[in-house]
């Protein structure tokens, strides 16, 4: 079975994905509002899995909501909270529920979240989870036992093209492709000349690349991300540009920067699409797309 997202990736169009974060609690109103707003404008919506290790409504439930509202969900799954039994079981359930896109992640440290004393699992890693998806598709669990009823997924992973040192990340990137990744979303990119260099390397693999673009909401937020968010490195000139925005115009400036970056990625055909991360401001994704000239 080919998912709508998989179809979009194969079509050669400039693919756009974004995120929807499940709430802390059971009030899904805001999430549903964001999904309604975004579902027809983007090719798929990632549903995050206890992002930054903060306990929330599950990504599986969030992905079901996207599906229910007529959107195309990408189920984010981390290896932090579930062992191989639970991960396989959730993949069976997701596929049964019509969720056919999965983004396999290792997951942030438990210590970064709001349940610091919890036991971290990491029974599998992101590349092994991709292998699990492919094994289940063959009709077997990873112990080799037959499944009664199969699954089908468009599966992907992530890479951090601005990591230092980069080479160990690239080795892992290649392992993810070997394990069965069809698409790779990148962690936030800011230095597009550097990203072009990364694409000269990544372009040789049979995998679709979506460049990660984060909406900067203020100069302090950019500095906070540099100090606190794993794998995000905002350059000083962008922080200065955010700081130079007149009062009341800061968010507009952030939208302009994100739109400008997406526009350049699109126009210069750097990669297959973008993954827009407008953390807690998902409703601004259409404005970013508009600033990029995409709608």
């Amino acid at each position: 079975m080919v998912s709508a997202f998989q179809k979009a990736l194969k079509s050669g169009k400039f693919v756009i994905t974004c995120e929807a974060a499940p709430p802390k609690g059971t009030n899904l109103k805001r999430m549903a509002h964001d999904i309604e707003l975004l579902k027809d404008k983007v090719d798929a919506i990632n549903v995050t899995d206890h992002q930054s290790s903060v306990m929330r409504f599950p990504s599986l439930g969030g992905a079901m909501l996207v599906k229910e509202l007529g959107g195309e969900p990408i189920l984010q799954m981390t290896c932090r909270d579930r062992n191989r039994l639970a991960l396989q079981a959730d993949l069976l359930f997701a596929s049964y529920m019509g969720i056919h896109n999965v983004l396999c992640l290792t997951g942030d440290s438990i210590m970064l979240g709001d349940h610091k004393e919890a036991k971290a699992v990491f029974d599998l890693d992101s590349s092994q989870l991709l292998g699990v998806v492919r094994k289940l598709e063959e009709g077997k669990d990873i112990s080799g036992n037959d499944l009664d009823g199969g699954v089908s997924f468009c599966a992907g992973g992530i890479v951090t093209p601005e990591a230092d040192p980069l080479e160990p990340q690239l080795i892992k990137f290649e392992k993810k492709i070997e394990a069965g990744a069809e698409f790779i979303q990148t962690q936030a990119v800011f230095d597009l000349d550097r990203f072009k260099k990364f694409m000269e390397y990544a372009g040789q693999f049979n995998v679709k690349i979506l460049a990660g673009v984060i909406l900067l909401t203020s100069a302090p937020m950019a500095r906070f991300m540099n100090n606190n968010i794993a794998g995000v490195f905002v350059p000083q000139d962008l922080i200065d540009e955010m700081a130079s925005a007149p009062k009341g115009q800061v968010l507009t400036k952030g939208i302009e920067i994100a739109g400008r970056m997406i526009k350049r990625i699109h126009e210069e055909k750097m990669c297959d699409g973008v993954h827009i991360m407008a953390i807690n401001k998902e409703e601004l994704v259409p404005d970013i797309m508009s600033a990029a000239g995409l709608i």
């Binding site: 890693d125 992101s126 990591a163 230092d164 990340q169």
Partner: peptide, 17 residues
């Protein structure tokens, strides 16, 4: 994280996240 296939994305400048 006890990973056996390479670093996670949180590593920076050779240090742990």
């Amino acid at each position: 994280k006890g990973l056996v296939n390479g670093p996670c994305g949180g590593t920076d400048s050779g240090k742990c996240e």
